[in-house]
């Protein structure tokens, strides 16, 4: 019988070293949500896995965009109470902005 505490400790060690692989890119990914409220992306940084979807929901009264030109991320105008969903297919760190409001920034990390 394998002592369970040791197994757990090993798993924790692998996980802390980043050796636990992310969820596979195939199949239905997990859905994540980023709220746009108070002229901010909440959370400002979100980490997802390839195949996951991220939905930005605009709870502000004014329209916004989710834009990262280099990464080809462009939501177009998201009006009040509207949403936009993006499927993360390529690993990497994508800093994005609202094209309309220069102070609004977020980061999407795809693992």
């Amino acid at each position: 019988m394998i002592p369970r505490p040791r197994t757990l400790a090993l798993l924790a060690l692998f996980a802390s070293a980043g050796l636990v692989p992310p969820a596979p890119a195939s199949g239905a990914g997990t859905g994540h949500e980023v709220r746009i409220e108070g002229m901010k992306f909440v959370p400002a940084r979100i980490e997802v896995h390839r195949g996951d979807t991220v939905t930005w929901v605009n709870q502000d009264l004014v329209p916004h965009t989710v834009t990262a030109q280099k990464a080809g991320l462009e939501s177009g105008q998201i009006d009040h109470d509207k949403r936009w969903t993006y499927k993360a297919s390529k690993a990497g760190e994508i800093p994005y902005v609202c094209r309309f409001h220069p102070g609004m920034r977020g980061i999407l990390v795809v693992k």
Binding site: G38, K40, D60, L61, V62, P102, G103, M104
Partner: peptide, 13 residues
């Protein structure tokens, strides 16, 4: 209250 942050962002812009 909801519109206030937009006015703050406009001021900064």
């Amino acid at each position: 209250e909801k519109v206030r942050p937009a006015f703050v962002a406009h001021l900064e812009h």
